[in-house]
Nucleic acid binder design. Structure first.
Lengths: 341, 341
DNA sequence: TTGAAAGCGCTACCAT
DNA sequence: ATGGTAGCGCTTTCAA
């Protein structure tokens, strides 16, 4: 930087200001600095900047990354967070230690990062308590049980579920089903219970009969999904809300095909809170998707503000659900007799 | 740190040495320092340490993360790299920008990281040229076409393939098949061609008839895999080397079941270079796996040495393949007439 | 609009 | 075995 200053015939502080723009610099001077920078191939030293500015321009992203987690979904969130962060001149440091708290504590204590983004939030997440104990601002992508004092971001699952129930009820369905998540997901993840409860609640309000079927029992995952879908259809459901990953969706479609049910003529389907592309399935599905980029954009926005020292009111920021119509919902078949396998 | 020094009644440099261990410190002093550290809840400032020590204890991990990449595999490598790095006191900074080179250039120029790990290496990867132009040490996990001057780490695919061919040939198979990767993988990834060529070469050497079948044509991925397996069996292959992800493996097993072929009595199967657990498939498969942790451990080891200023000879470090016998290989059925669908 | 200089909080060299 | 101290390469306050 010293060399740049000499080459441009200005002081070192003027170079700093010319580059950061934190102080007005005359056009002539700025150009001389820019030329010197280009000529010398100068680029500022991140380490020195970090120490002097007291910020690293790095966010930590904590994600336990258990072996059983659904990789594509997590990858989507990591990618989305990374993209959002770069837009605001931040880099992402990955924290994947077995004990999620250890890494968080470490980067907080050492001042290695300006803020922490918490992914894959469990209802009773150990990182919740820790975030209250450290000085580094923390933003949760997902909503744990106890949110006191926390900054959380998530899809508005209640609104999404209501919208989904309404879509089926509006089309005339009176018996609707929810294909649930796996039993474990109700323990480890934060939103499945919220969706289930909202589903029951909204269905009651709309006066439609609601069934929830969890994919459990023996067999491979696809078999459990298929069986769950089968049970819902047997139970009289003419419209089903499908949750889960691509495999779950494919299994439901496979079961419909097995029974010779056309979509949406014989069976209405709506994908709820999926992160994969439900438009490229064998039968494109109308969907209320969970868009990682939306959550991550907002989370990064809040993290950046907190890192800049701005006050951000604790609380839960819910993202409005998006409704993507792909024509997989219709009125239930007029005839009560429907073809079965 | 100043406070700790005063509390312990020593100089600030002694505190530094007591904590880093870079200079012998008497037991008594060390204990006084440790007490002071504990009492004051002191933890060293990472930013200051970075500037003074001229290293950040951070490795960049560049991974394009295209939407079409197989998420579970990439995730496995990211996790493995993270674990390996933490063992050596390094953190991982994720670089996933669309133009992989931009991020690499940036962290190199600013001195933000001590070394760069390159994942998902394409045969003609743009990061190869860049790595030669920057000062930051770089380690490739995968082998590009032009490796001059590079430090690369990878599974010894040639040895793995030879071992696989030998296993089938030793069991008495005279017609063996290779279930190839998808056509795109041969362009974007670096090892599929190596395996294919080694397969043909080794088969010729062993005097066994080799068929390679690429899963292409219409239909879903699983359908293409199934068809490829079917073609190999129709072609007379009594032993098949299975590559690819879990779906590919499942498809081959499904096709075998469809034809009523028992494994290994009627058909021998060997999984080659898979990153998922081939022991938990419906039929556990004998395998020569690709173990992300092995590659990442070695890569991190080399990166750490380079970061420490040690000389590391450029070149390709190949990892010895592991052979995991799960009993899915047997002698080919004595009778030339085998049941077919 | 610009410059001078005091840090930022450590590391590591030079002493003793 | 320990202490003093000069940087590391920036940012930012205070002055002009």
């Amino acid at each position: 930087m010293d060399e740049v200053a000499r080459a441009a015939g200005v002081s070192i502080s003027t170079v700093s200001y010319a580059l950061s723009g934190k102080r007005p610099v005359s056009v002539a001077t700025r150009q001389r600095v820019e030329r010197a920078v280009a000529d010398l191939g100068y680029s500022p030293n991140a380490r020195a900047r970090m120490l002097a500015a007291r910020r690293t321009q790095i966010f930590a992203l904590t994600e336990p990354l258990r072996p059983d987690t659904h990789a594509p979904t997590h990858m989507a969130f990591v990618l989305a967070a990374s993209i959002a962060a770069r837009r605001k001149e931040y880099d992402i440091l990955l924290l994947t230690e077995a004990e999620a708290s250890a890494g968080m504590q470490r980067v907080a204590d050492s001042g290695l990062v300006d803020a922490i983004l918490v992914l894959d939030v469990a209802p009773n997440d150990e990182r919740v308590g820790l975030s209250r104990a450290i000085d580094t601002p923390t933003v949760f992508i997902g909503v744990p049980t106890d949110t006191a004092g926390l900054v959380c971001v998530d899809l508005d699952f209640a609104a999404a579920t209501r919208r989904a129930v309404d879509a089926l009820a509006d089309a005339g369905h009176t018996r609707i089903g929810l294909l649930g998540h796996t039993p474990e997901a109700y323990e480890l993840s934060n939103f499945p219970p919220r969706v289930r409860d909202a589903f029951r609640h909204c269905s009651a309000e709309r006066g439609v009969t609601a069934q929830v079927r969890i994919p459990d029992g023996p067999g491979a995952a696809s078999e459990r999904f298929r069986r769950a879908a089968s049970d819902l259809i047997e139970g009289g459901a003419t419209g089903i809300l499908v949750q889960g990953n691509e495999e779950a969706h494919l299994s439901v479609l496979a079961e419909a095909e097995r029974r010779g049910l056309r979509i949406p003529a014989d069976l209405s389907l709506l994908s709820l809170a999926a992160t994969h592309d439900t438009g490229s399935l064998p039968v494109p599905l109308t969907a209320i998707p969970l868009v990682p980029q939306d959550s991550c954009d907002l989370a990064v926005e809040l993290a950046a503000r907190l890192a800049a020292g701005e006050k951000v009111a604790p609380g839960i920021r819910l993202i409005d659900p998006l409704f993507v119509d792909r024509g997989s919902i219709a009125s239930p078949a007029a005839s009560p007799t429907r073809p079965t396998a």
